[in-house]
Simulated scan of single mutants.
Amino acid sequence: MVISTLARPVEVEAFMQSLEKQTYKDFEVILVDQSKSHIYDDLVSRYSTKWPLKHLHPDISGLRYARNFGASVAVGDLIAFPDDDCIYEPDTLERVNTYFCKTGDKGFLTGAVLNLDGAPTTMGRWLTSSQKLNQHNIWTGLIEFNFFMPRTMFEKIGRFDENLGIGAPFGAAEGPDLALRLMAAGSQGYHDRALLVRHTDKPATLNGERAYDYGTGMGYVLRKNHAALKTVATFFIRPFGGVCLSLLRRQSEKTAYYFKVLQGRLAGYFCRAASEAAQRNTGRIFS
């Protein structure tokens, strides 16, 4: 488990406490600390006696670099990238281990999201049943902090695309991009509705800047990975419909929000960087 963190010792402590409750105990934690301070020293000292714990201080800051940096020193068969403010259920790692034992450490696994109170999250639309993943339902069936894969496959496909994520040129969709590249390399993904991770609900505010930034990431990844017309149309029509419906209801704030989503997706999809990435990425998606 590679955890990138910046000045969140309380949240990281809560995650560590959830690891203490795991019914499966064979794991290592790699804490990629970008805080430029000693706020984690006590936590690391206490928990490094319980399981292997590496405390790293990268020279380059940013989530997009930290995960790949942490992964470079991992030694486990499987790898995951939990957020520093998420919490595993007691059987999370047991379910992961059982799945990969059955499949022979092939494919990749993801699951569902709850808020910290154990209720369904408000962070977007998500699959409501367990099922195989493909290039269309990956967008509603996968989230980065509940995503487990063989480390060898992660390395084989080139790790995370550092053009994606918070602070990167394209502000989101690094998880779906990674999953799509895994599928193109022959991996089968599976969404286990009973594989649960808790996470703080993001505020339900209509942030136009964030909507545009996230939209560029989705657009870029759709183009880069040669998404089918059905998938592209779905994720362009939805925000367009949101604009039209909000206009009819005279909801100016929502109209502006959906317009920014659509604008971002279009900008990401039709930009030169996406076109060049698509030309380099000729892998076939297994649906």
Rank of each mutant, 00 (worst) to 15 (best):
S48G: 14
D33K: 07
F69C: 08
S18N: 00
S37Y: 04
D42Q: 15
D117V: 13
N115W: 09
D59W: 11
R67I: 07
N115D: 15
Y65R: 03
M153Y: 10
G76I: 02
R64K: 13
S61A: 12
F160E: 09
H57W: 14
F148V: 11
T152F: 10
T152Y: 11
P150K: 00
G104N: 04
D85A: 01
F108H: 12
A66E: 01
E144A: 15
L19Q: 00
L63W: 12
F27T: 03
N97A: 14
G62Q: 01
K54N: 08
I30S: 03
D41K: 14
A112S: 15
R95L: 15
E20Y: 04
V113P: 09
Y24S: 03
I138R: 03
F81G: 02
R64V: 04
D59C: 07
I60A: 08
G158N: 01
H57T: 09
S18P: 00
L78A: 01
R67C: 04
L31R: 07
F160H: 09
D161F: 10
V32C: 09
N97D: 14
D26T: 10
L114F: 11
R159Y: 06
R67K: 13
G70S: 00
N115C: 12
Q135G: 13
K156F: 09
L93W: 02
F147V: 02
F100N: 08
I138D: 06
